[in-house]
């Protein structure tokens, strides 16, 4: 086999080996996160609040799931809420009785 073909085969094997081995180690890491997960769970158990601390500028964005329903413009007209994502509210209406 010519050297040019060998070079290409080598490149392909290397790329495949790198991505597969990285994928494998990620897979292993994903299943061995128990201690870290326990600490996270302990934190949530203690503070008992949902959602991630990704945004703290507007209060309804921090604990989105507990946010005021229809909270648009509640704090700042420029901070637009995007409709279905910020709300979890669903009214429970009395069910009509079947006759």
């Amino acid at each position: 086999m010519s050297s040019k073909a060998k070079l290409l085969l080598f490149a392909l094997t290397m790329v495949m080996a790198i991505s597969l081995s990285t994928g494998g180690s990620l897979w292993r890491a994903q299943t061995s996160q128990t201690k870290r997960n326990l600490i996270k769970q302990q934190a949530v158990e203690l503070i008992q609040l949902p959602d991630l601390a990704l945004t703290s500028e507007a209060t309804w964005l921090r604990h989105r799931s507990l946010a005021t329903p229809f909270s648009i413009f509640a704090e700042d007209g420029a901070l637009l809420d995007y409709y279905p994502s910020s709300f979890v509210y669903k009214m429970i209406l009395p069910q009509p009785k079947h006759r």
Partner: peptide
């Protein structure tokens, strides 16, 4: 201080 493991949950929390 909350440890770094739970930073995504507790970054802005004061207990």
């Amino acid at each position: 201080t909350f440890t770094d493991e739970s930073v995504l949950e507790t970054n802005d929390v004061i207990l």
